[in-house]
């Protein structure tokens, strides 16, 4: 095991880590505003990829930027639908199980719908963000570099939005205390709509960016969905920059684990890490609230 290999593993781990980080950010948003987890988020990622690739690029032959914008719009609307159909009616129930199961079942519906609408064949979009960069012996995909940049942009953008706009400030209030926010005249229901829509748009960003890495299929986002949860927990539940730290840690640890363990235990490592953090430090590395 020489230095070049180590660096390569670190770089790839970092690249995967940023994908987990984006997933972490996207669900942390929903968590903050509703106190619920959106278990259909991996399917929303897939839906974003299908909309962009299957319908707008390959189906209608739109240019990439137009396709991206259209995918954002539709995903945003779907986010509003989810908020009004599942989160708002079910969040006040006695147990969170209702809303969480609602999103899980929704995930199944989306998966089946994708198969029925776009057919069962997986596909790729030739030329979209493909290619890679080689520095010495180290290789990294162009898509990975773009994912790193985009996730940083998303975090910065979200922080600006949350701190300097009225809607963003309202979102933070709702995150801290729904009752108080409602008393202060903030429309919590509407707020949840906006948050879920933003989260769905981030899902479609992830979906579009991982097409060159994983192709478009109904199983493309299965593993990153769960690992995104781990990223959020490890970094600090409910704290956006924490998701990035958590994602990077998972990406790197699971890649380096291969040096001591057989590669098939890679996933076990990240889940064990998740459980350990939940037991020992549920607030995560950067989180504040319990």
């Amino acid at each position: 095991m020489n230095a070049a290999v180590l660096v390569q593993l670190l770089v790839s781990g970092l690249a995967m880590g940023f994908i987990y980080a984006l997933v972490g950010i996207e669900y942390t948003l929903v968590w903050n505003s509703t106190g619920l987890l959106n278990f259909s988020h991996d399917k929303l990622i897939m839906l974003g990829a299908y909309l962009f690739g299957g319908t707008f690029v390959l189906g209608m032959g739109f240019s990439n930027p137009l396709a991206i914008v259209l995918a954002f719009v539709i995903m945003g609307l779907i986010g509003v639908l989810i908020a009004n159909g599942i989160f708002n009616p079910l969040r006040t129930m006695q147990s969170m199980i209702f809303a969480v199961m609602g999103t899980m079942i929704l995930g199944r519906i989306i998966k089946e719908a994708c198969r029925l609408i776009w057919g069962p064949a997986p596909f790729a979009i030739s030329g979209w963000l493909s290619g890679n960069i080689r520095i010495g012996k180290i290789s990294i995909s162009n898509a990975n570099i773009i994912i790193c940049l985009v996730s940083l942009l998303v975090v910065i953008g979200l922080q600006l939005f949350l701190n300097f706009t009225k809607t963003g400030k309202a979102m933070r209030c709702v995150a801290q205390n729904k009752k108080a926010a409602a008393l202060m005249g903030i429309n919590v229901t509407q707020n949840i709509c906006i948050t879920t829509a933003v989260s769905a748009i981030i899902c479609s960003i992830i979906g579009i960016l991982i097409i060159p890495l994983f192709n478009v299929s109904t199983t493309m986002s299965n593993s990153i969905g769960l690992k995104g949860f781990s990223a959020g927990v490890i970094g600090g539940f409910g704290y956006l920059p924490g998701a990035i730290i958590g994602g990077i840690i998972i990406g790197i640890v699971e890649n380096l684990a291969v040096m001591v363990l057989p590669a098939v235990y890679k996933d076990v490592v990240s889940f064990v890490l998740l459980i350990l953090f939940l037991l020992v430090k549920p607030t995560g590395l950067l989180g504040k609230r319990a």
Binding site: L36, L37, M96, F229, V233, L278, L279
Partner: peptide
């Protein structure tokens, strides 16, 4: 939600 993640893991 923490517990559901622990049990999934």
């Amino acid at each position: 939600v923490y517990l559901s993640l622990t049990t999934i893991g």
